[in-house]
Computed example of a mutant assay.
Amino acid sequence: MMRDRFKISLFPFCALVFGIFALMIAVYLIASLPVLQKEGVQIYTSNEWRAVEDNPEREFYGVLAAIYGSLYTSILAVLIALPLSISFAVFVIDYAPRKLKEPLIVATDVMAGLPTIIYGIWGAFVLVPLLRDYVMLPLYRHLSFIPLFSFEPAGGYSFLAAGVLLGIMVTPFASSIIREAYRMVPYTYREAAFSLGATRYEATRILLGHIKPAIVAGILLAFGRAVGETVAVSLVVGNTFNIHPSLFAPGYTISSLIANQFGNAFIYGYMVSALFAAGLFLFVIGLVVNIGGLMVLRRYAHAQRG
Rank of each mutant, 00 (worst) to 15 (best):
E39Y: 10
G197Q: 05
V41S: 15
K101I: 14
D94I: 03
L208H: 10
L166E: 08
L235I: 05
K38L: 11
I67N: 12
T230V: 11
V236R: 06
T45R: 10
A154I: 05
I178N: 00
S255Q: 04
I30G: 05
Q37W: 14
V63D: 13
L10F: 03
A181V: 00
F283N: 13
R305G: 08
E152T: 10
F18R: 03
S176I: 01
A66F: 07
V90K: 04
L207Y: 00
Y134N: 06
L36F: 12
A26M: 09
V237I: 15
A81R: 02
D4P: 00
S9L: 12
P138G: 05
W122P: 09
T253E: 13
L143F: 15
S195N: 14
F21K: 02
L294V: 07
S256K: 09
Y300S: 12
S74H: 06
I258K: 10
L207G: 03
W122E: 10
A31W: 10
D133F: 13
G62W: 12
P250H: 12
L100R: 00
I168W: 01
P138L: 07
T230K: 08
L160H: 11
V227L: 06
M169C: 07
L297C: 03
A26H: 03
A232L: 03
A89N: 01
D109I: 01
L139R: 02
V17E: 04
Y95N: 07
S195H: 04
G197W: 11
F125W: 08
Y189P: 00
K7V: 11
E48F: 01
A112W: 01
V272D: 12
N242F: 08
G40F: 09
G197V: 01
T188R: 04
Y28F: 15
P250E: 12
